[in-house]
Amino acid sequence: AQASVVANQLIPINTRLTLVMMRSEVVTPVGIPAEDIPALVSMQVNRAVPLGTTLMPDMVKGYA
């Protein structure tokens, strides 16, 4: 199954992502693919992302 990017902590709005904030997990619905984690580093989220939330393309500025 495809692993997705999941928030490893609460990520406040406009925060630049770092590796420690993200983990890969097989979840439904599928979000951003886990292999994109390196590309997500330093991108900003456009909303607060609670712990355990799957990151979707529309949550990350410049990803989609």
Rank of each mutant, 00 (worst) to 15 (best):
K61V: 15
V26W: 15
M56T: 13
G62N: 12
T28M: 10
Q44F: 12
A1C: 06
Q9G: 06
Q9T: 13
G52W: 05
V26E: 10
T15V: 11
D58H: 09
R23D: 06
M43I: 04
I32C: 04
T53G: 12
L17N: 00
I32N: 00
G52N: 13
P57N: 04
Q2G: 12
V20D: 14
T28F: 13
M43T: 06
M43N: 05
V6T: 05
P33I: 06
P38N: 07
V20P: 13
E35L: 12
N14P: 01
A39Q: 12
L55P: 00
T53P: 01
T28Y: 15
A7V: 06
S42L: 08
L10W: 12
M43P: 00
P29L: 05
I37N: 00
S4E: 00
R47I: 10
L17H: 00
T15A: 14
Y63R: 03
V5L: 03
V20L: 15
G62M: 06
A34E: 10
V30I: 14
A64P: 10
L51D: 14
L10A: 10
L55G: 00
Q2C: 05
V49Y: 01
L10M: 12
A34M: 09
R23N: 08
A48F: 15
S4G: 04
A64S: 13
Y63I: 05
N14Q: 09
N14R: 10
P50L: 14
P57K: 09
S4W: 02
E35D: 14
A3T: 07
R23A: 09
L10T: 12
S24N: 07
P57F: 09
T53F: 10
M59N: 07
M21C: 03
L17Y: 02
E35Q: 12
M22W: 02
A7E: 01
S42R: 08
A39M: 14
P57W: 06
N14M: 12
T53V: 10
A48P: 08
N8R: 07
N46T: 15
L10R: 09
I32L: 05
T15M: 12
N14W: 10
A64T: 15
R23P: 02
T28S: 11
V41R: 07
A1I: 15
